[in-house]
């Protein structure tokens, strides 16, 4: 069009790009569906004259077998949750000539798989060729991998010469449980934050249990303050916060009430302590927090 301006051209371009991306995605979907269909390979084989093998046939057959392998692999990942694989360490000085066993642990949360976690094991001991040791891993420190490894994957002791009894399956199962429950707790706190009407970003500077800008000398001396009498208003919730491992969740209200609760690994609130800013305990709130973590805000009447 003669009347087109740079703006409309840009918009057209963006539109075309979006269409292209959509079509590419659709093509990939269709080809996957076609390749994975059980009838495809039968049709290919029946329509082919005996003894003649054209290059097109060969490549189609290889594509189908590739797809089958990938489907099996993905299904195993999705359904079993833990997949073992082999890795070759390129380091020329690596122990056991660089043979590494990897275990991939899937975490499924809110209808999607997260990027998996990996544990990489090697066999560093010359005297115990079957004894595994965790070489590298990608789990965050809030998952107690080291404790679990001590329990299920004990290392040989210098004092007694016996080979330690290791159970990799138990270790992997325990780690998967820890990772999955951690992500469930994180998601639960995220939902609490939404229920309380808080956005993604709180103001930088609000910290657990402390007004950052308080004068340290006042703060240090201000622990024992007389409780003020009279009814109080909670107001709306200003923060819902947790530590990274989500073992402690704290909620604070505008009116100066704060509750901290201890959450068990399976998401059960075990204990809660509620205090007004003056230091006075609020037992009604403390009783209300006990139970599942998911409904805490609702139980406390904290909806907007």
């Amino acid at each position: 069009m003669a009347t087109s301006t740079p703006q409309t051209l840009d918009a057209d371009l963006a539109n075309l790009h979006a269409q292209l991306a959509h079509l590419r995605h659709r093509r990939a979907n269709l080809s996957t569906a076609l390749l994975a269909h059980p009838n495809t390979s039968t049709l290919l084989n029946t329509n082919r004259p005996r003894g003649v093998q054209k290059p097109a046939h060969r490549s189609a057959a290889s594509l189908i077998s590739k797809q089958q392998k990938h489907t099996t692999h993905s299904l195993h990942r999705a359904l079993a949750g833990c997949t073992a694989y082999k890795v070759q360490d390129p380091d020329p000085h690596a122990v056991d000539s660089g043979r590494v066993l990897g275990v991939q642990i899937e975490v499924f949360i809110e209808g999607a798989f997260l990027p998996p976690y990996h544990i990489l094991l090697n066999r560093p001991y010359a005297t115990y060729p079957q004894t595994l040791k965790i070489h590298k891993h990608t789990l965050p420190p809030c998952i107690p991998l080291a404790q679990l490894a001590r329990k299920h994957l004990p290392q040989p002791n210098k004092n007694d010469g016996s080979e330690p009894v290791q159970d990799l399956q138990k270790l992997v199962r325990a780690v998967r449980w820890e990772a999955q429950s951690w992500h469930l707790r994180v998601a639960a706190v995220e939902r609490l934050r939404e229920e309380a009407g808080l956005g993604e970003d709180e103001e930088v500077g609000i910290m657990q249990g402390l007004d950052v800008d308080a004068n340290p000398s006042e703060m240090l001396n201000g622990y024992v303050a007389p409780a003020k009498a009279g009814p109080r208003r909670k107001g709306r919730i200003v923060t819902v916060d947790s530590d990274r491992a989500v073992t402690v969740v704290s909620i604070e209200w505008m009116g100066g009430l704060g509750v901290k609760m201890r959450v068990k690994k399976d998401g059960e609130v075990e204990k809660g302590v509620a205090r007004w800013r003056s230091g006075e305990r609020d037992e009604r709130t403390e009783r209300a927090v006990l139970g599942r973590i998911e409904g805490v805000v609702e139980r406390l009447g904290g909806r907007r």
């Binding site: 990939a28 979907n29 999705a78 998996p116 990996h118 590298k136 891993h137 990608t138 420190p141």
Partner: peptide
Amino acid sequence: GSNAAPGGWSIFVDNKLNQNTLDFGI
């Protein structure tokens, strides 16, 4: 998660060698 997988092992942290589990395309 990158504490115990530095250097070349970081490919496991970034998960570059895997597709999403539910992605069945090859």
